[in-house]
Design a protein around this nucleic acid. Sequence first.
DNA 1: TGCTGGCAAACA
DNA 2: TGTTTG
DNA 3: ACAGCA
Length: 472
Amino acid sequence: MQPYSPDKPSAPRREGVKFEDVRLYLVERKMGRSRRSFLTELARSKGFIVEDVLSDVVTHVVSEDSQASSLWAWLKGGSVKNLPVMHVLDISWFTDSMREGKPVAVETRHLIQVCICFLNYSFTCTSGFSLQDAFEVLAESHEFNDMEGPCLAFRRAASVLKSLPWTVQNLRVTEDLPCLGEHSMCVIEEILQHGRSFEVEKILSDERYQILKLFTSVFGVGPKTAEKWYRRGLRSFSDVLAEPSIHLNRMQQSGFLHYGDISRAVSKAEAQALGNIIDEAVHAITPDAILTLTGGFRRGKDFGHDVDFIVTTPQLGKEERLLTSVIDRLKHQGILLYCEYQASTFDESKLPSHRFEAMDHFAKCFLILRLEDSQVDGGLQTAEEDRRGWRAVRVDLVSPPVDRYAFTLLGWSGSRQFERDLRRFARMERRMLLDNHALYDKTKKEFLAATTEKDIFAHLGLEYIEPWQRNA
DNA sequence: TGCTGGCAAACA
DNA sequence: TGTTTG
DNA sequence: ACAGCA
């Protein structure tokens, strides 16, 4: 079904289409009606498809309004589900493409980069309530203003709301929840009544917030660095990159270099392709090595923001060497774009800590790998005009000793909420301490060994739960 | 009323 | 040392 | 300036 009516005078023409997979939508706001028609005709005459209506078939949104909060606010209006996979571009991409006579590759300078959270917030307030996004915005805004107390409080409020199994419909159910005080309750009430919060919208339309949000979206740039740049008058990525006195560290360099790729979702097919690459590498080094895909993909999710693997070997004590060898091998293959290696700080006499989740002390590394299109079953999920033939992907490898493999697997498979619930159950109901390293029985004062996840569930007196059942 | 607010390791 | 990441 | 606690 097409999103336009074919009898409208401005219906896209089908003859002379040269680029079937690129569908433009031009935002009239700030552009004006006549200029929009002119640009539409120009593009169509060069073989582009231009849609009259914003819908799910659109792949490239082009706007002249690059101070972007109003743009995103407007984009939310249409019930478009796949905004995250659309390119939202400024007019420079359009003019470049017209000059070339074909869709040019999307580069960082083309993107209209506004915070993802604005997008989430806008969605939730128009279709169903998920209050957590509003609180995430409040937390972030306080973080940018160096108010760590309120920031923490709003973050906790957001995570409490997220953990609720139901969607909040009225104030009563939230009355006796933890971490929701006077201020938070006011925000909730406002959103429940009017579908929006004045305070949150003020933050979202604040220029400083938008710019800091933009800067911190770069891998390696936190609030302090973002604010330093803002205070120096820098307002865009090109401002930062053009400033000679700024020297980016290694992390920030790859953050900018692979900005588009790293912020794009990773598909299941891409995760499996990465699995093949790592699999080949570990088995070339150690034939009986063990490799497991974890994280969201192990729970059956279709997309993720990175790909996590556990790598180990049956020979106890050799696992750390295996990991460094894998890194060396990837480097020699020329696909290692970034690597941060952390040696093991594992102490097996230590009791599992229930204070903090998902923090382990095994040898691990955070990588950015180059993934070739030809290695992916069905191809990379890139836009048609992206002719590089590869993309960058964030990959994490963790390498526990084999006798801790099951605990690490359970810990890295998530979800976060499932891990929290499981650890709380172990502690409260079984008087046991569980983390990524071990399971400890406080009553018997002994560690409980496990070679599989099933062993751990059995120790806890629970029926085995499949990974794809662990999303709640 | 006044204090606290998960951690460790790598980089520059 | 301060900043950032997971 | 937020929430929970001593």
